[in-house]
Amino acid sequence: MIELTNITKSFKKNEVLKGIDLQVKKGEVLVIVGPSGSGKTTLLRCINYLERPDEGTISVEGFSIEGKNASRKDILALRRKTAMVFQHYNLFKNKTVLENVMEGLIVAQKMKAAEARALSVDLLQKVGLSEKINDYPAQLSGGQQQRVGIARALALNPSVILFDEPTSALDPEMVGEVLAIMKKIAREGMTMVVVTHEIDFAREVADRVVFMADGVIVEQGTPDEVLAHPKHERTKQFLKRLVREPEYEI
C-alpha cells in the first residue's frame, strides 16, 4: 500500500538516506529503530514530503509521485492521504484542543463544521480527553498534548499515520498513556509507521521491525527476528547498548 523506491536524501554533503526501498502493507504496524543520525526520522518525513527526497518515488495507495520534481498539487494530495504525530506534538498553539482536531477536517477535507465537531468529540473521548476539549494546548501536560496529536491524526481518516518518536519528548510517567493509545489504534487495524526508541512497544505491537543505520536498512523482519535474534553485528551492538543505557533523545 505504501511503496518507497530508491529514496535518497542529502543535507549539504551529508548523505542521510542512501537509496531506501520499503513497502508497508495495509493494516501493518511497521516500527523503525536505529541509532540517532541513522536517517529514520528523515525517511519518515519523506513519506509525507515534509522532507523533499533528492531521488526516488513515493507511492501511497496507488498514488505515486516522483521525489525530485513533485508539483505542489501532488504534494498536497500525498499529504492528504497521510497523517503525522510529531515528537514535540506540534499542536496548533492558537487553537483549542477541539479546534486542533477539527482544523484539518474543515480546511483540508471541507467537512461541515457540525459533522467535524461530532467526529472530533468522539475521537477526543477515545483518547480520554473529553474534559479538555476547550482548553488550549499550553494548558495541557505533554502526554495529554500528544494524545490530542493522535486524535488529530486519526480524525483525518488517513491511509497511514506516521509517528515520529512520539514519546521521546515526554516525561517518563507519561509515556505509558501515549503508548496505550497507540496499541489501541494498532489493534483496530490502522496502518502505522512508527519511529521510536521504545523497544518493548516494538516487540509487543509491531508486525515488522526495520533496523536502520547510516542511511540504509540493515535488516528487517518480525520483532522476534530482529530484536531477539538479530543477524547483523550492527544490530546486535545497537540492541546491547539500548539495554544497558537507554537512549533518550531530547
Binding site: 509525507n48 515534509l50 499529504r79 497523517a83 510529531f86 496548533f92 484539518g104
Partner: peptide, 22 residues
C-alpha cells in the same frame, strides 16, 4: 516554531491556509 507549519501540512493544509489560519 517551525513545527507549527509542519503540523499544518501534515493535516493537509496548503501553505496559504497554514499561514492564514495557524
Amino acid at each position: 516554531s517551525a513545527g507549527q507549519m509542519e503540523a499544518a501540512y501534515s493535516v493537509g493544509m496548503t501553505t496559504a491556509q497554514g499561514l492564514y489560519r495557524i
